[in-house]
Simulated assay, not measured.
Amino acid sequence: MTATPVLTENPAARTSRPSTAPSRRNPLHLRDARAAWLFLAPFGVFYLAFLIGPTIDMLITSFFNTSLVKPGLGSFAGFGNYAEMLSRPDFWSAILATLQFTLYTVPPLVVVAFVFAVLTNRVRRGQWFFRLAFFLPFVLPSATISLIWTFIFTPGTGLWPLVESWFGISPGAGVLASPNTAMIGIAVATLWWTLGFNFVLYLAGLQEIPRELYEAAAVDGATTWEQIRYITLPMLSRTHTLVLLLQIIASLKIFDQVYLMTGGGPGISTQVVLELVTGTGFTDNRIGAASAASMLLFILILVIAVIRQVADRPSRAEA
């Protein structure tokens, strides 16, 4: 009579067997989730009240003949406000001026900020001074920046006409008084003002790159340019995308400097879309038409942002 073998369960197999008992969430995770939502709640309320809410209201208003001096939405216009804006020459002139300003500001604000960040990151002592020097103008209000640069470009008393006289150049009517140079003057003021923001983003990305990579490359005989090309640029690919996208959106939303420095002049050579919106809504009292122009600018920004993100997908997939 043969003995029946006793089957013993392997402890390793028992631990690897999936449990059929209902899973219970960790109370600590639930507490952390509640705390996170609690901290996000104030921002969420302001986000809904001052961004999402006004955007929905603007979308609704763009389909009505809403007036600033009459209560209510007014008569229904459908896509009439959009058709009117798309047929107005000053709207397309404002679009071109906005794109011109974007073209003048985005490349230098990205490239110069990157170069300054790379140079500052290589400084061993006194790096705080360069951080402060580059970022300090960004904390100043737009009105202060506009007054400073308007004074610099003022013929006769400004610094720029004095520099022109050193090189034997006649000052003429002034930088901001000429349709050919007014937008360039606004772009220079914006470059000096907002460079520090992109500079800080790049500097933060550079400090996340391990220094061992540069030391190993230097041991292998890599030059400074080769280290930047093969280490810095690839490691900052996400930072490049973030800075470029934020800068394009910020440049397309230009308003303060133009309104304070030139008022859209000379003529309408520097009139951007948001200034056209302000004039249509608060001077002509046509809130519906101004909302339609704002929505068209929103669509333009959204399309450019989507194109930029789609174009960046192959590079991120390769990385």
Rank of each mutant, 00 (worst) to 15 (best):
F64H: 13
F64C: 07
P54Q: 03
T20E: 06
W92K: 14
V115D: 03
T66F: 01
F76N: 13
Y47R: 00
F63L: 15
R31G: 09
A83L: 14
F91V: 07
T102S: 13
P71H: 07
S62T: 03
F91C: 05
A33I: 07
I95D: 01
I52F: 13
R25E: 08
R31Y: 01
L40T: 06
D32I: 04
Y104Q: 12
T105W: 12
T105R: 09
Q100P: 10
V106S: 12
R31A: 12
A33G: 04
A113R: 01
L99Q: 07
A97M: 02
D57Y: 01
V111N: 12
I60C: 11
G74N: 10
T105Y: 12
Q100D: 11
I52W: 08
D57W: 03
S93F: 11
T105E: 15
H29C: 02
A33Q: 07
S67Y: 02
L38D: 02
V112P: 05
F116V: 04
A83M: 11
L30E: 11
H29Q: 02
G53M: 05
P22E: 04
G74K: 05
G53P: 00
P27G: 06
V69W: 02
L48E: 04
R88A: 14
P22Q: 01
L38Q: 06
V115A: 14
R88V: 04
P89K: 13
P42A: 03
P89G: 08
V106R: 10
L99G: 08
A41Y: 10
S62D: 06
L99A: 12
L48V: 13
F64E: 10
P89C: 08
S75I: 00
T61Y: 10
G80S: 10
G44H: 05
F116P: 01
R34I: 06
T102Y: 09
F91D: 01
F114M: 14
R24I: 11
M58R: 03
R34S: 07
D32V: 06
M85E: 02
F63N: 12
D90A: 15
P42Y: 05
K70C: 00
T102V: 10
A97S: 05
Y104S: 08
A77S: 14
S75K: 00
W37L: 08
F79E: 05
V110M: 13
S67G: 06
G53I: 02
S93W: 04
T20Y: 01
L59S: 10
L59W: 03
A21D: 13
T20Q: 08
S87I: 04
F116M: 09
A41K: 01
D32C: 07
V112F: 15
T55Y: 02
V115C: 11
L30V: 12
P42G: 05
W92R: 15
F76Y: 15
V69Y: 03
A77I: 01
F46R: 00
A83Y: 05
L48Q: 06
A97L: 03
I52N: 01
N26R: 05
L38S: 10
G78H: 06
F43P: 00
P108F: 15
R31T: 03
A35F: 13
R25Y: 04
T20F: 00
L38N: 04
R24F: 04
T20P: 02
F64G: 09
R88K: 14
Y104F: 15
S75M: 01
M85R: 14
G78Y: 01
Q100C: 14
T98W: 11
V45Q: 08
A97R: 03
A21R: 14
D57G: 04
P108I: 15
